[in-house]
Amino acid sequence: MWSKKGRIEDLIFWKGNMEVEAYEYDEGNAGKKFIEGIKEGKFYGIKCSSGKVYVPPRDYCPEDMTEGNYVELTEPYLDLLTEVREDSYGNKLEKPIKVGIIRFLNAKGGIIVRVEGDAKEGDKVKVIKWEWPLVVGKA
């Protein structure tokens, strides 16, 4: 029999902050194009010579390492939906946050977004806020 209580309030914790350096991350050409697209209210992907479309766009097509062409993608749908009830430190949120992945028909990849309203998995969605994090709702 376990004699452990399993209750977080009975445990001793040591909390602190680790010293970490700032970092710089380059989003690359395709990443830049994608971010610019979001500012314009558009989703960009790349279309490769094989006919496959990738979103977010990549610098090179994985099949043949050639540069693809940017294409605009429309009509996203909600593929996955989940609910977040705690923040990253385990504190309960006042109101759960809905998070999902949107995808496009005939395109590989997806984008993680916040979901508002009663959109369900499989529903067509529209972007409510073109800023990070993207917020979508039922179309």
Binding site: G6, F13, W14, K15, N17, V20, A22, E24, Y89
Partner: peptide, 21 residues
């Protein structure tokens, strides 16, 4: 270019046994 300073907070627990101790 994205510049970011990670907020590397930690919370290290003594665990079930050593907390009681």
């Amino acid at each position: 270019m994205i510049r970011y300073v990670p907020k590397a907070k930690y919370s290290y627990s003594a665990g079930q046994a050593q907390s009681v101790f």
